[in-house]
């Protein structure tokens, strides 16, 4: 069964925080893609358990802010950096099923995002740059 409008909104908020694009390099974010058409396809063509898992994952990320960030809001009510913090926290959560469900959402998002022709075209080797400039934020434990 398709995701409802509100569920799609939550999924979109989570996925666009996961795959925001990169203005420095010109990589577009997932929001520029047909996310709702893709999610409809997932819900229609993937096995029942995966579809159920995806739906539970969407509810989980939507309603998690009070528990993870102490903020009374759904994911839609958070600013972008907070959404990232929320998702990072859930992916490293001490409860196994929480980690797994959010990973399932990330997996479906990654299949759409990195499967997109425009994104693939931007991954060509000419774009290689040394890593020197890479400043990675402290990783969650």
């Amino acid at each position: 069964m398709k995701l409802s409008g509100i569920e799609s909104g939550w999924a979109m908020a989570a996925l666009s925080a996961m795959f925001p694009g990169s203005p420095e390099t010109g990589l577009e974010g997932i929001a520029a893609m047909d996310v709702s058409g893709y999610l409809d396809d997932v819900m229609r063509t993937r096995p029942f358990r995966a579809v159920l898992g995806l739906r539970v994952a969407v509810w989980l990320v939507a309603l998690a802010p009070p528990f993870v960030l102490g903020r009374v809001a759904t994911i839609v009510g958070l600013a972008h950096p907070e959404r990232e913090r929320l998702l990072d926290g859930l992916l490293a959560h001490r409860t196994y099923s929480v980690r797994m469900l959010v990973m399932l959402l990330k997996t479906f998002g990654a299949l759409l995002y990195a499967g997109d022709d425009r994104v693939r075209a931007r991954l060509r080797p000419a774009r290689l740059r040394p890593l020197i400039a890479l400043r990675l934020r402290g990783s969650p434990r």
Partner: peptide, 9 residues
């Protein structure tokens, strides 16, 4: 690993 801008980099 990660999500968001770290992941993009």
């Amino acid at each position: 690993p990660g999500v968001g801008h770290d992941w993009m980099r």
